[in-house]
């Protein structure tokens, strides 16, 4: 992994040949370094049960976030004021930035430091992925130069970022539940929040993530109308979104009405996120979508 990181830091000549994007690549490097440091600090917090300095880990992540914000800002202006998500790397970068933002807000309000142990390495790997998959600013198709694009991208990504955290707390829930149920004690147990708290966080993330996702889908279908002529056209991307939306909607309803909670809620959250993630990573090549940009 270090080798990859090293290579990523040494894309120098290639990058400089592209002139204009030197600045945001440098900023992105700084971001990656911060995310890596944060990852180390969170691992020490989790496994060695030691706080280097009580609030260091989230602060390192914040440092990375600020550098990341600057990088994205530069990129934003270079791409002509539209969120540049036509390339995989751009999408990764934007998504990890939103995820870190959501985590930092959650940390501010709910103090779930342990969640950073999930967010920091993921943010680091995504930033790394952004390097590994090349550089440059993608060309935006003329038809997408509408204000619905930034709205759609922001909402959809934000919703997914919140669900990533819901996914993380659900995983933690299952782990913690397994440990308590089977009377196993591990080092993880000491840092994990209680089952009740993890369950409540799952609910909070759902409540925030679901409306965002809903709006993301609505704005997406408006874009689809602009681009493809129809709000709904049975595109695989639309179908997976709909499945996840139904899953989360059902879970939210089940929680409110039938008292679904705990293990069941955690499992459903994981399945819902897996559908999205699975399509991002593999589904696209099996069921190609007309959905331009990002994960193609």
């Amino acid at each position: 992994m270090l080798a990859v990181f090293w290579r990523a830091l040494h894309v120098g000549p290639y990058v400089t040949s592209l002139g204009g994007i030197v600045m945001d690549v440098t900023l992105l490097k700084i971001t990656a370094v911060f995310y890596l440091l944060a990852t180390g600090s969170f691992v020490i917090y989790l496994v060695l049960l030691r706080d280097l300095f009580p609030r260091l880990s989230p602060l390192l992540l914040l440092g990375g976030f600020l550098a990341h914000t600057a990088a994205l800002g530069v990129h934003f202006f270079q791409s002509g004021g539209y969120p540049a998500v036509t390339q995989f790397r751009e999408a990764l970068s934007l998504y990890s930035w939103l995820m870190v933002a959501v985590y930092l807000l959650v940390q501010l309000k709910y103090r779930v430091t342990v969640l950073g142990c999930f967010v920091a390495p993921l943010a680091f790997l995504m930033t790394l992925g952004a390097f590994a998959s090349g550089a440059g600013i993608g060309e935006l198709p003329a038809g997408l130069k509408t204000y619905w694009l930034p709205v759609h991208v922001t909402l959809a990504f934000l919703g997914n970022a919140v669900f990533a955290l819901a996914f993380a707390v659900s995983l933690m829930y299952l782990l913690q539940e397994y440990q308590v149920k089977n009377k196993k004690t591990t080092v993880l147990q000491k840092r994990f929040p209680s089952l009740e708290r993890l369950d409540r966080l799952n609910y909070i993330f759902l409540v925030w993530g679901f409306p965002l996702m809903t709006l993301g889908i609505i704005s997406g279908s408006i874009l689809a109308r602009v681009q493809w002529g129809n709000y709904w056209s049975w595109d695989p991307r639309q179908i997976t979104s709909a499945i996840t939306w139904l899953l989360y909607g059902g879970l939210l309803q089940g929680r409110a009405a039938a008292g679904w909670r705990g293990r069941k809620a955690a499992l459903l959250t994981i399945v819902g996120f897996a559908v999205v993630l699975g399509y991002f990573l593999w589904g696209g090549s099996v069921f190609p979508s007309r959905h331009r940009g990002t994960f193609e």
Partner: peptide, 20 residues
């Protein structure tokens, strides 16, 4: 100083892993 070493404090620790 970590880890509970009496029956009562172990029970409390477990309760805290479940409830909060």
């Amino acid at each position: 100083g970590s880890g509970a070493v009496s029956v009562g404090s172990v029970a409390v620790d477990l309760a805290k892993q479940i409830f909060d």
